[in-house]
Design a binder for these strands. Sequence first.
DNA 1: TACGATACGGACCGGTGGTCCGGTTGGCAA
DNA 2: TTGCCAACCGGACCACCGGTCCGTATCGTA
Lengths: 191, 191
Amino acid sequence: MPGKPERADAARNRQAILAAAAALFDRDGAEAVSMSEIATAAGVGKGTLFRRFGDRTALIEAVIEPRVTALRDAVEAGPPPLGPGGPPAAALHAYLDALLDFVWANRTLIRALEHRGPHAYYANAASRFWIDELTRRLTAARPGDDAEYLAHALFTALRADVIDYLVTVREMPPDRIRAGLHGLAAVPPDD
Amino acid sequence: MPGKPERADAARNRQAILAAAAALFDRDGAEAVSMSEIATAAGVGKGTLFRRFGDRTALIEAVIEPRVTALRDAVEAGPPPLGPGGPPAAALHAYLDALLDFVWANRTLIRALEHRGPHAYYANAASRFWIDELTRRLTAARPGDDAEYLAHALFTALRADVIDYLVTVREMPPDRIRAGLHGLAAVPPDD
DNA sequence: TACGATACGGACCGGTGGTCCGGTTGGCAA
DNA sequence: TTGCCAACCGGACCACCGGTCCGTATCGTA
């Protein structure tokens, strides 16, 4: 797939940038860190940073990418109920739990992504996957419902800034949010 | 309440700015309009703009304020089911409908507000009111449930950018979103 | 008419994401 | 080992942003 291998210095710099960015994002919150700061911290010129990653959005995506991949693997090929093969309701709940944990653990990065461009949160390739998977599991657990809309609504309820607001400002314990999510995903009465 | 009346030129400029800002926000999307553009369009210096409104956030809020007030009045003192006095379930549904219409009609402005600061969407004074009212109506319609969490989840599902994404990109008709919202707000089975 | 309070406006500031290009370096071929 | 050139580097540079400052013009009153 890679047309040409990367030169040694280029590869070294890519790693340095990724490491520096992850550290700074984690320490100060991704929105508070400028590209120049990252370049400096990585011991690299700003030009290098932008040549490697194109723009700020791409850098942030590159930093989360490995974590996304880990969860994605567990979802696509791990053991049930999170992995494929479990009973629909359990699969749905396990998936929601995993997403909530993921969002909470990576809230700074995700928040930074949410705030780029008009539909950044949903247009994102990773998000598309999460939503599609959520749609599948909802379809299986709740046949007859509007799974596509429901998936988007639930995914929206998992936005990093809401979660962060509820926990930080409203002082809701994460388990309460978890319970609320499960309630929203539960089968409603046929009215 | 006003300590001193505003000078004539000041009042004229305030109106000019408000009008210019509303027009530009509506035409280009609020995030794409800079403060200087607004000042120029209003035929006013940038200093004047900032002295009147303090900062960008306050300007945007000032532009939506009259629309917020209109809906707020209907909710607090209008005829049922949107106004007070109707049966709980109808009150809840009418309220969700009104919020959805409001968000759709003012999506550009609201989007601009969503993207300011960490918890801008929720910390906002108007939002607090919407959420509190939603909490009340949920409590009335669904006693025993976690109305506070539910209110935040539903309100999040009403964020302008989600709605806009669903309608614009996913091509979901607004009525489908409406139906989905009602489904989420409906009483779930006691499991 | 004269005068002080109020308001005006655009030059200015620090900082941002992103670009550009002269100089450097890695890695291959001879 | 040497020589060569594509690949890569880095920081000066750019346009622009939100926001401030202050000398000047205007309003409204006495």
